[in-house]
Simulated assay, not measured.
Amino acid sequence: MPWYIKAVLRIALPAACLAALYLSIPGEISLAKTAGWSAHYAPAMPVCLSVYALAAGAIATYRRKMRLPGQITALVGALAALVLAMSAQSISHLIEQTYMGGSALLTVAVSCVPPLVIGHLVHMAETPSQAVSASEEIDELRETNSQLFTALIEHEGKVLLSRTVAVLGVTKHLELKAGAVVEEAAGAIDRIELDMTPRKRGGARVTGQDIEEAREKLTRESGEKPTVARICEFLGISQATYYRHKPAEQHAAGALFATV
């Protein structure tokens, strides 16, 4: 908020209000004297009119902001107090300037001002009890909102729980299907590896034992240790197959080659 706005709210408004009240004092005192009050009681008229108008307006504004009962009556009282204050100023000045004179009707009207002010002040004095009722109503509304909020949370919790159970069921089903797929893939891998294993001339699969038997047979026939190429030619297999089926403890280098 700009500084000049703050200055208006904190200084200018109170100053203008005090000045208006101060200017209202002579006319209202004069009107009270015209209505028959003595100089000893006449100074109470400014309090009865101007200050009462200010108080009624403030109470009406407070009730409206706090949404308390009696907003309309407080507003009507504030407007009536403002009209009385303006009328008092106007009538007193008209009488002083000899534009009009006193009358029985004017005397009765001015004399009724204090009782009217007292009656409205008594009515506005009910504000504390009404405020308590409004407070109780607010507490009741808060309790109702709390109960509704709790019921909503319970409902949403049940919905969330049911959805969680459904998700767990779907997850379990997917887990079972994944296990079946893994088992099927493992079987397929076994079949592929079996199909990739070369066969020797008789149609049977080549094993490490076949390689050892071929080596021993060729050794007996030639009297020398056969080469890997000779064994592979004898069995009809590749050297990669030879090193894949040869025991690792005897041909580590061949196993390394087969792995790569």
Rank of each mutant, 00 (worst) to 15 (best):
H123I: 13
S133L: 14
L106S: 01
K33H: 15
S90A: 07
I29V: 11
Y22P: 10
K33P: 00
A88C: 08
V108H: 03
G102H: 00
G36F: 08
S146G: 02
L54Q: 09
L79T: 13
L79I: 06
P46R: 08
T127G: 05
L13G: 05
A39L: 08
V122Q: 04
H120D: 04
I59R: 13
T107Y: 09
R142T: 07
L21A: 01
A44S: 07
E137W: 12
E96Y: 13
S129I: 14
H93L: 03
G102R: 02
V51R: 14
A125T: 06
A81H: 07
I25Y: 06
L49W: 05
A32F: 04
L141C: 01
M124R: 03
L141K: 08
A88G: 11
S38C: 05
S92E: 12
G119W: 07
I11D: 03
T34V: 07
L9W: 09
V76D: 08
A19V: 09
A58C: 15
A39R: 10
A44M: 07
W37H: 03
T34R: 10
A131D: 03
T98F: 14
S129C: 09
I95T: 10
G119C: 10
T144I: 09
E143L: 02
A78Q: 11
S146V: 04
G102A: 00
V132A: 11
H93I: 00
S135D: 10
T98Q: 15
L21F: 07
L82K: 10
S30M: 02
L13D: 00
S24I: 02
L105K: 09
L82M: 09
G27W: 04
L9A: 08
V132R: 10
E137Q: 14
K6A: 06
Q147F: 04
A15S: 06
P46G: 01
I72F: 15
A35I: 02
V122A: 13
M100R: 03
H93N: 02
A56Q: 03
A32V: 05
L106T: 01
A15G: 05
G119E: 09
R10W: 13
I118A: 02
R64E: 10
A80W: 06
Y62T: 08
V117D: 00
S103H: 01
A104F: 00
E28T: 09
V122G: 00
L82S: 07
S38W: 08
H123L: 07
A109P: 07
H123Q: 05
Q97K: 14
I72L: 06
